[in-house]
Write a protein that binds this DNA or RNA. Sequence first.
DNA 1: GACAAAATAT
DNA 2: GATATTTTGT
Length: 353
Amino acid sequence: MIKKIRNMDYNQEECGQYIKALEEERRKILVFQRELPLCLDLVTQGAYKCKIATIERCKKEITETATDNVYGQSECSEQTTGQCTPVLEQFLTIKDSSTFNEEEVEEEFEDEQGNHDPENDSEDKNMKSDWLKSVQLWNQPDPLLPKEEQSQQMMETVVKRDESMREDAMANSGERRRRETERKQRRCWSSQLHRRFLNALHNLGGPHVATPKQIRELMKVDGLTNDEVKSHLQKYRLHTRRPSQTVPNNGNSQKQHFVVVGGLWVPQSDYSTGKTTGRATTSGTTTTTTTTTTTGIYGAMAAPPPPQWPSHFNFTPSIIVEEGSGSHSDEVVVRCSSPAMSSSTRNYYVTKN
DNA sequence: GACAAAATAT
DNA sequence: GATATTTTGT
């Protein structure tokens, strides 16, 4: 008897381990459920069937044990039930664990999504029962139907189930993707930050020589990422690139004018107002194109800036002053906390002098 | 809807 | 790292 129970426990343990392993694999595959829906299906089924098998075996064993007890009497009536109870518990927990694991997986999603809608629970359960129903349909085809139709039905069920699973997987992965690819908060390039950027750019020999990484390192701004610098640099390069002749700038006295200082576009107002100190001397790359008159300004420039770009910045001489100063403060880092503040430079490139 | 900035993908 | 594309805010 005890031997029997031990044997049973052993089998359960063995099967439990197997289930555990299957579920582990299932969890792993779940990550690739979109690519491997069938694998997931197989593993899930494997675990499920294994559980069912264990449950059935346990039932059988229990029945046998009960029968033994009834007829074999005394021996271990209390002990046996005492030992059988955990089996029952295990039986229950197995079932629980089967549902639990699905829920666990879902919880993982929910955790990632961060929003768990309790109203959907009933729906989930319905869906689960549907899933189980389909399994049942699978295993127990309508006895009234002829064989071909049964197999047809089975196939349909399989296909349907496959499709629904794939759809689920798609939906989940889509949801997951949406979560994963949630956009980071926009970085606002304050004038100060941009100044640092320009400064670094200048130190590195101009926008076409400097690399994002170098720039970032030179800027020494906490939390600033390569990507951000890269993006900014791209925009900068784009805007400082030689534009196609037709700059709708002519006669627009509203627009600010710019000059090239050391390969950097600087508003003429800043550069020509005598604010520019000390610069002009450094590296060989420094080509100070002196300012011209308001009208001829772009003619002297290698690449006139687009009407919009730097006009939002105040290219103050502090570009040079900050040079080499190892100090960096977080104050230059501005995160657009509210949507209203984000995006347009019109709003957030404010001079902080 | 156009546009620009910033983020993200290739 | 450079460039293209997408998303986002105005």
